[in-house]
Every structure is written in C-alpha cells, then in structure tokens.
C-alpha cells in the first residue's frame, strides 16, 4: 500500500520533535529537587529546572494544590504562599520586594519566614529546598 502522509502524521511528527527538543533542553539544564510539605505531614519531592519559580514547579509537576497560584504569578493573589525554614529564608538571594510584602500581608498563617512561591526562583544554591504549605491552600484536611 502506498504511504500517504496525513495531517495527523505531520502533527505527531512535529510533536515528537518538540518532545525531543524538550528532552534535550532538560539534559542541558541542571535538574534540582524541591520538597513541598503539606500540613498533614505529606511530603512531595519533585524535580525542576534552573530558574523555575516555585509556582512553575507546582504547575510543571502537575501538583494538585487546589487554588495555588490563582493569579498566575502576577503578585495579586497570595495563594502561592509558602513557609521556609529560617536558614533557607536567610539564604535566598533576595528579600521580598515591597509589592511581595503587600501581598504577604493578606496571606493566611503568615510567619516571619513566609514568602510567595511565584517570587522564589530555584538555583543551584537552593537545590533540595524544602517548603511548607499553609493549610488554607492544600487539602490536608481530606
């Protein structure tokens, strides 16, 4: 039978190329680990790329935290609130900006080591970072 390339074929071929490109990219950029700790103690360890924000990490790994990142990282919702360990909070390269602090003022269960996940970018120094989620965001209660 004569082989006729269909649209479907072309589509799937371009999809494969994209996937290959992505895999290439993943190989070339270093992979780091981040752990999210829910209020019920459940620990979720995932990997991410250099420069990903914690919000990217949640989205790219399809983490099912209801409501997390409602504004898409535009500093207008504070649903991406995370609580860090003191030593991690201190070693973040930047302190929260005025705008981030304004949004943190609305966060539930605010602590002195609270940050907004969409503003934290993962670098080599932060590999292995562990952050806690406040109970209002995740479904610890279920």
């Amino acid at each position: 039978m004569k082989y006729i390339p269909t649209n479907k074929f072309i589509q799937s071929r371009s999809l494969t190329t994209t996937i290959n490109n992505l895999q290439e990219k993943e190989k070339s950029t270093p992979q780091y680990e981040v752990t999210f700790v829910k209020k019920n103690g459940e620990r979720i360890k995932v990997t991410c790329n250099e420069g990903d924000s914690l919000l990217d990490v949640v989205l790219n790994n399809n983490l099912d935290f209801d409501g997390y990142g409602a504004c898409g990282g535009t500093l207008t919702c504070s649903t991406c609130h995370v609580i860090l360990k003191k030593e991690d909070f201190d070693r973040l390269p930047d302190t929260p900006t005025e705008e981030e602090n304004d949004m943190l003022d609305l966060a539930y269960e605010y602590t002195d080591t609270s940050r907004l996940g969409c503003q934290i970018r993962i670098t080599k120094d932060l590999n292995g970072l562990e952050v806690c989620l406040p109970s209002s965001i995740n479904d610890a209660r279920s």
């Binding site: 409602a70 504004c71 207008t76 919702c77």
Partner: peptide, 10 residues
C-alpha cells in the same frame, strides 16, 4: 486589575 482576573483561567 486584569491580573486579578487570571483566576478565570482556573
């Protein structure tokens, strides 16, 4: 406040 309305995506 367009950014606030991003919740609509969800």
């Amino acid at each position: 406040h367009a950014d606030v309305k991003n919740v609509i995506n969800n």
